[in-house]
Simulated scan of single mutants.
Amino acid sequence: MLNTHPLQHPLQQYREMATAGQAVDQASTNMALAVLATESAKPGRHPLRFSAPVVLNLGRGMMLLSLAGAGTALAVAYLYPEQYSLGEQVAAHLLLPVMAGFFKLGYVIRLAAHHALGNYQAG
C-alpha cells in the first residue's frame, strides 16, 4: 500500500512506487489522482502554468500560420481556380472563415500574453 512513511506526501509515495517498478493497486492510483486533483484545485494555483513569453510566441505563430493558410485558401479559391478540382475549391472556400477564426484566436492569445507581461497598450 502507499503508506510507507507517515509523513510522506501520498503523491510522492505513488511516484516512488511507480518508478521503483513496484506493483501499484487501483486504490493507490485513485488516491494519488484524488490528491493531485485537490492540490491543483487550491485557490491561487492553476494546474497549467504557462509563461507569458511562450504564450506570446504561441499567439504570434498561430496568427502567422492562419494567415498563410488563408492566403493559400484564397489562391486556390479565387486566384487559380482553374487549376484545382471542384472539391478542392469548395474546401478552400470553407477554410477561409476557419482561418479567420484561428487568426482572431491567435490575436486574443497574443493580447492576453501582453496583458500578463504588463503591456496594456498592445493592440
Rank of each mutant, 00 (worst) to 15 (best):
T29C: 11
L36I: 02
Q8T: 08
L65E: 00
Q83C: 03
G61L: 15
T29Y: 11
M63H: 07
L65A: 06
M63P: 04
A52W: 00
Q121D: 05
A77M: 09
Y84K: 10
G118R: 13
L7Q: 03
A27T: 15
V108C: 06
K42P: 04
S40T: 15
G44W: 11
Y107W: 14
F50R: 12
E16H: 11
Y80W: 15
M17I: 03
M62F: 08
L86P: 03
N3A: 08
H5S: 04
G118F: 05
M31H: 14
N119M: 00
G101K: 01
L105C: 01
G61R: 07
S51A: 12
I109A: 15
L79H: 11
G71N: 01
A91D: 09
G101P: 00
Q26W: 09
P47K: 06
A100P: 00
L33A: 13
E88Y: 07
L56H: 06
Q8C: 05
G123Q: 10
N3C: 04
H5Y: 10
M31W: 09
P81R: 07
H114Y: 15
Y14C: 06
V108D: 12
A75Y: 14
G44C: 15
F50N: 11
A116C: 01
Q26L: 03
T19D: 07
G21N: 07
S85E: 03
Y107A: 12
R15P: 00
Q26Y: 05
L94F: 00
E82R: 11
A68V: 01
N119V: 00
L86K: 11
A52C: 01
H46C: 00
Q83D: 10
S40M: 12
Q83Y: 08
L33Q: 13
Y84N: 14
D25N: 15
Y78G: 04
R49C: 04
L74T: 14
M17P: 02
G21R: 03
G101I: 00
Y84A: 09
L2R: 12
G71T: 03
S66H: 02
H115F: 13
N57Q: 15
Y107L: 08
M63T: 04
A37K: 14
S40E: 10
M17L: 10
A23G: 07
T19A: 08
H46G: 01
M31I: 07
N3K: 07
L79G: 01
A18L: 09
F50D: 08
A77L: 11
N119F: 01
Q89F: 05
M1C: 10
L94E: 02
G21P: 01
D25A: 13
V108F: 02
P10G: 01
V24Q: 09
T72R: 02
G106R: 02
F102Q: 07
L7G: 05
Y78M: 11
L95A: 15
M17Q: 15
Y120M: 09
T72S: 06
Q13V: 02
V24M: 13
G87R: 08
P97Y: 03
S28Q: 15
H5E: 13
L111T: 10
L11P: 06
M99V: 06
E88P: 03
